[in-house]
Nucleic acid binder design. Sequence first.
RNA 1: GGGUGUGUAGCUCAGCCUGGUAGAGCAGCGGCCUUUUAAGCCGUUGGUCGAAGGUUCGAAUCCUUCCACACUCACCA
Length: 503
Amino acid sequence: MSEQTIHEKHSTLENILEQRKEKIKKIREMGINPFPYTFDVTHKSQDIKDKFDALEEKTVSVAGRLMAIRRMGKASFAHLQDTEGRIQLYISKNDIGEDSYAMFKLLDIGDIIGIKGIVMKTRTGETTVKASSLTLLTKTIRPLPIVKEKEGIVYDAFADKELRYRKRYLDLIVNPDVKEVFIKKAKITQATREFFSSHGYLEVETPILQPLYGGANARPFTTHHNSLDMDLYLRIADELYLKRLIVGGFDKVYEFSRNFRNEGMDKIHNPEFTAIEFYEAYVDYFYMMDFVEEYFRTIAKTMGNSTIEYQGETIDFSKPFARKPMVELFSEHLGIDISTYTEDDFAVLCKQKKFEFNPKWNYGQFLDKLFDEYIEPKLIQPTFVIDYPKAISPLAKVKRDGDERFVERFELYICGSEYVNAFSELNDPLDQRERLEKQDRLRVQGDEEAQAFDEDFIQAIETGMPPTGGVGIGFDRLIMLFTGQTSIKDVLFFPAMRSEKLS
RNA sequence: GGGUGUGUAGCUCAGCCUGGUAGAGCAGCGGCCUUUUAAGCCGUUGGUCGAAGGUUCGAAUCCUUCCACACUCACCA
């Protein structure tokens, strides 16, 4: 590279990269390794601000990324960003020496440095580390988006959603609120583990690559194992495997299950998402309702408040959650008693309401579709909807009162969205075989979402599964709820996107 | 899949309606500056205007198609 090219002033991205590579070269020529191995950090930015009185005039070491540089000749101010926040640096030629200051002049916003210095306040009152030495920790090549802020107003915010999702690392560096969401998510994950652990649950892992997909109704992703020469499916649910573990004698198991469903994407659907599924022997869905209620209350407490604001609603987790049979909700919200309805009655109702329907729907499908349309959006405060139609619940036990149309199943609704799905699990192997055979017939007839027949699962149930309560919680949606986010993309570090063309 | 909108410099945006060959701020580059903080001041570079066609003497601007993203509806536990 000639001197001529080095001092090229063009600020195309290409030239910016070249200039920065040239700076690395110059730094090396100064006898400095721009990529050293360690740095001894004694304090985080926030510690220093919090404990200023104790630390004033004391020496500290901080490390992080340069996020602003204000050069004033022989001295400069800068802002250093570490995991906890930002702190101002004061760097003067007198203090760090001529050589270091010359190196500092080659630094850019985004570079990672370590500073050893004395804690002080500037005359405007900002806590500042006055550098006594500066160590370059990582020289960067690629420029960062420059976001500025004054008196709480953000200028030139890095707000392009596409870029933010594609280059999440930039988003995290530049938008501190984003980091907060994921820190909260980690706290909820941890609180969840503690909750299950304290209730005697064992965390387990089951196959993500499955020879048959089941446990839910959805289209799967298909893949192929070369040496076995067999097609495999990415799991749509882990339910059937967790039940095998209950059969095997584990009484309480749970799994954070990354599930994959080959379906549409929107604000609440990502092709891969996380569910918490858990199963407990010798309990039913009534027990599980109490348990789920306690879980939500625990998470709310972890997040600091028993009430939260979400999508303009105030949700109160401290009050007992409502528990209402599906049929009852039709009376409550539509003023219609459907307890004796037949398919034909539903068809008439749909016509009256100008609600599009398929005349082939069975009782359960009518109920389900009408529920989604008319009832679901009205369930704002936490509400357990109980007793679902058997036809749409092939893995749940029929109601103990003998009404064969319904199963012991509940879903938890908050703010018009579903968060939890649970059953008194079906453990009658004859009934289970029959119902999965029915699902398989539907699948063969072209219902891509019907469940495949899993003989080994049936054999497990035949081996004897104790009475069991089972629950699935939509974990991403739960995170959205407790972090105030309205898009699943904002609670996933790397949401699914079409691949971009990289130059 | 339908509808609406967006796409211009590394980043944030203006210009588009009403066609005349691209503009600002930040960042960069060259200077000045030892308590600044959206630092300031002087100077300066930087663009296949998402892509491809078309209309036109002339297209960032008008038209068509395509691509990506967002919002929304539909589908989907």
